[in-house]
């Protein structure tokens, strides 16, 4: 469904991605693993058009996203949960969700569905997003992206700094979305968290792809992970 073909991208003069190729199918979780600075977040930003893609193509069902305006990309049903959540902190929970709903003109049906997944948010609709706890903020960031009714979901370190019960909740949501046929691209630091839900794992180093491996193989042989990550 989503296919990156040899993309290069970076910030200003500095090229960070030197040719990344990936493919995520519907109903699949592809996880990006790599050390800090390997280009995982940059890959996500390049897909969203937040930084210019200077070479290669980002194909969604054959359409090259690298050639359309950044604000048109989410309308193709791509939901993005950025690193550090990036909520609109001064807006209320309800307003944050409204921003998500407006992307593709969804209404109260979608809103109710999303709130059913995160009942805690329903109690806090009028509260300012910045005053939520860390776990609730992650729920809201996820809910906001789900308001798009995404076919592709990009999650950048969704469990960073969360307590175990919250990690389990986020994980359940991700697995549920996979069952719904969403193509999921996940960046995650914690290897055990990755192995338990990923279908395939793509290793990235210095802005280049290394191997993409079935998660099952990694689960069977942990030493593979150590070899790829060099730890």
């Amino acid at each position: 469904m989503l296919k990156l073909r040899d993309i290069q991208a970076g910030y200003g003069e500095a090229t960070v991605l030197h040719g990344i190729s990936l493919e995520v199918a519907a109903g699949e979780i592809l996880c990006l693993l790599g050390r800090n600075g390997a280009g995982k977040t940059t890959t996500m930003k390049a897909i969203m058009g937040l930084i210019p893609v200077t070479a290669g193509a980002v194909l969604l069902d054959g359409e090259n996203l690298a050639q359309i305006a950044a604000h048109e990309i989410p309308k193709r049903a791509i939901g993005y949960i950025p690193q550090g959540r990036r909520l609109f902190a001064e807006l209320t929970v309800a307003e944050n969700l409204e921003i998500g709903l407006m992307v593709r003109g969804h209404g109260s049906a979608t809103r109710e569905k999303v709130l059913d997944m995160f009942p805690r948010l329903r109690e806090r609709l009028r509260q300012r997003a910045g005053t939520l706890s860390g776990g609730e903020q992650q729920m809201l960031a996820t809910a906001r992206a789900l308001c798009i009714e995404p076919r592709v979901l990009l999650l950048d370190e969704p469990t960073e700094g969360l307590q175990p019960s919250m990690i389990a909740l986020i994980r359940d949501v991700i697995v549920y979305l996979r069952e719904q046929g969403v193509a999921i691209l996940l960046v995650e630091q914690r290897v055990d968290a990755v192995l338990s839900i990923a279908d395939r794992v793509a290793f990235i180093e210095n802005g280049r792809n290394r191997d993409t491996v079935d998660a099952a193989a990694l689960r069977a042989d942990h030493s593979l992970v150590a070899r790829y990550l060099g730890v």
Binding site: M48, L50, H71, I73, K75, E95, I99, M102, V103
Partner: peptide, 23 residues
């Protein structure tokens, strides 16, 4: 809605773009 869009853009331009706001 336009007010909401303006406030969102004010708070976080990049995330606004990622949610289809034509900044």
């Amino acid at each position: 809605r336009f007010g909401l869009v303006m406030r969102a853009t004010q708070l976080d331009r990049e995330t606004a773009l990622a949610f289809a706001i034509p900044v």
